[in-house]
Simulated scan of single mutants.
Amino acid sequence: MPNLTDPASLDAEALYAALLEQVKTGLAGAHDPAIVGIHSGGAWIAERLAQDLGLTERCGVLDVSFYRDDYAKKGLPAEVKPTHIGFDVAGATILLVDDVLYTGRTTRAAINELFDYGRPARILLAALVDRGERQLPVAADFVAAHTRVAAGQALRLTQDEARRFTLTIEHDHPVT
């Protein structure tokens, strides 16, 4: 089991720097790399990674709202964003990026949607934070921190106007 970080002490900017170094090493020599972020926090991280790695022309965004297996239960979020992938996915090494890896359901939905755009040679998963408690067999290739939060709580990534990240612990609104 990985070392767990106290969720109250998570510094999102420091975590981003650690994730960037892991990804830089992990993508070295990758065939036809591209980055795809999951809306919204994963998209913010993906955009910064793409800029820092010189891959801005090969950066895309997914909104998995229509691909979730709990769509009928949760309904649509207030802000459904369009998916945008402006490059050829077929044969590429795709770095799929999310802010917080939890049950694995969002990752599954993102992979399903990604395959609608073509068949990548490889998909790698990067997450700023892994909070465990998986419901599906999903593991990140790159993760900056592992933590646990109390039942009924969620980690939320925000981005300010200067594009600096902050992680907060919020009350999770259960689906009824």
Rank of each mutant, 00 (worst) to 15 (best):
G132Y: 04
G118E: 01
T25D: 12
T25S: 13
T93H: 13
L136K: 10
I45L: 15
A72E: 12
W44A: 15
E133L: 15
T83V: 04
D63R: 02
G75H: 12
R134C: 03
T25Q: 10
L27N: 05
D99V: 02
Y102E: 03
G75A: 07
T56V: 11
W44P: 06
L27G: 00
P120C: 08
F87V: 11
Y117P: 03
V100N: 04
A90N: 09
L128T: 01
S65F: 11
G86Y: 01
E113H: 11
L76P: 00
Y67F: 12
R58S: 14
R122G: 06
F66A: 12
D130Y: 06
A50C: 07
R131F: 09
L124Y: 09
V61F: 04
T106E: 08
D69Y: 11
K81A: 13
A43L: 07
D141H: 07
Q135P: 00
L95M: 15
G54R: 08
Q51V: 04
T93I: 04
E113P: 02
D130F: 07
G42D: 07
T25N: 12
T106N: 06
R105T: 00
N112E: 12
V89N: 10
V61T: 15
G54V: 07
P77L: 14
A78I: 12
T93A: 04
A126L: 09
D141E: 03
Y71I: 15
V129Q: 14
E133Q: 14
P77C: 12
D98P: 07
L62H: 09
F87G: 15
R122F: 13
D52E: 02
R68G: 01
L124Q: 14
G26Y: 10
Y102S: 02
P137T: 06
T93C: 07
V138A: 05
L96T: 14
G41I: 08
Q51F: 03
D70W: 11
G60Q: 00
D70C: 01
G75E: 01
L49W: 03
E47R: 12
F115I: 09
G37W: 03
A110L: 03
I85G: 13
A140Y: 10
H39G: 05
A46D: 01
E79M: 13
T103K: 06
L136M: 11
E79Y: 14
I123M: 02
S65M: 05
D70E: 03
R105G: 05
L125N: 01
L95V: 11
A92F: 04
V89W: 02
C59H: 11
V80S: 00
R119E: 13
T106P: 05
L101F: 11
L27P: 02
A43S: 12
Q135G: 15
V64I: 15
L53V: 04
E113S: 08
T83E: 01
P120S: 09
G86H: 08
R48V: 08
L53P: 05
G26Q: 11
A34K: 01
E79P: 00
R131G: 09
V97D: 12
